[in-house]
Amino acid sequence: MNHPRHQLDAIIHNATRFSIMAALLPADKAEFKFIRDTVEITDSVLSQHVTALEQAGYVKVTKGQVGRRPRTWLSATRAGRAAFHAHLAVLNQLANWSPTAQEHRAST
């Protein structure tokens, strides 16, 4: 049970949610449709993923208006950023993981 796979965050393990978080990280806030275009998914799919991320406390949704246009802003919360970085570390481990390297690490 020491495979890094077991340490992955269940909420952002989904590749689309992970990409959403990755797209939100360099921003204080980003518009819903920008994230939709960046992750290349439809409005409804993004809505579903954002609801899941919001329920987990990883994303905050703000509605506002610029001029006459209504806008929905998404931002990553502190918990979301921490979860992303932890998940990222595990993914990096996974990307470079090999059983022999693991055995070598365990023996030293």
Binding site: H3, F18, S19, A22, L25, P26, F34, L88
Partner: peptide, 23 residues
């Protein structure tokens, strides 16, 4: 294990692209 590693690399690449676009 190799599948996990390949999938992880794909996800990481996609995340880097998404983050770069936002930046």
């Amino acid at each position: 294990v190799e599948q996990d590693a390949a999938r992880a690399r794909t996800v990481l690449g996609e995340a880097a692209r998404a983050g770069g676009r936002t930046t």
